[in-house]
Amino acid sequence: MDFSRYLERRWDDLLEQAVQHAAVVALSVLLATAIGVLVGVLTWRSARASGAAISVSAALLTIPSLALLALLIPLLGLGWAPTVVALVVYSLLPIIRNTVAGLRGVDPAILESARGMGLTGRQTMWRIQLPLAWPIILTGVRVSTQMLFAIATIAAYVAGPGLGNEILSGLAGLGSANALNKAVAGTAGVVLLALAFDLAFVGLRRVTTPRGLRV
């Protein structure tokens, strides 16, 4: 069967897998953003604390994904749960690192005048520091997202959702007529999804960056 006919026949299944792939990545990135920004906000002042947070998240990123998934199975079983946890763990480093860098990058003169004007620490964080650091934080989130699309394919091996299933079923059917079609569809699907999200990030960045930082 040629590729176009394969696509036509399996379109609904592929679409569902793609949606699930995007969903599990989006969910994980959202969770990781909440956690990572919080960690960054709590640690940025102390070089030691933020250094520790960055080192730990870098070490976690070093662990091969199949190994981390294996270690999560006894705790969380198969499927979405270990997938989301692993993806969150992998996306922490860019988000924490960029949050810390973004918060540190705010001009000390701006912090001094905020303090001198009588803003509390929390007001300064919410109204001044986070908006100014946001473009950098968002870049970290974008980098994490791109990484997760690839890693999420491997989660299919532990019954995780998404296009990895298409790729693995191609491998399982090695030698069969549709093996190549499946592998190509799964791989290309992931690439296209990642590309679409990357474009979405360009738009998101434009929409959420304070205007004063763009002029």
């Binding site: 690839a150 191609g170 992931v190």
Partner: peptide, 9 residues
């Protein structure tokens, strides 16, 4: 951008 697993397979 292609996932390693996809390329491998």
């Amino acid at each position: 951008a292609a996932p390693a697993l996809g390329v491998l397979v």
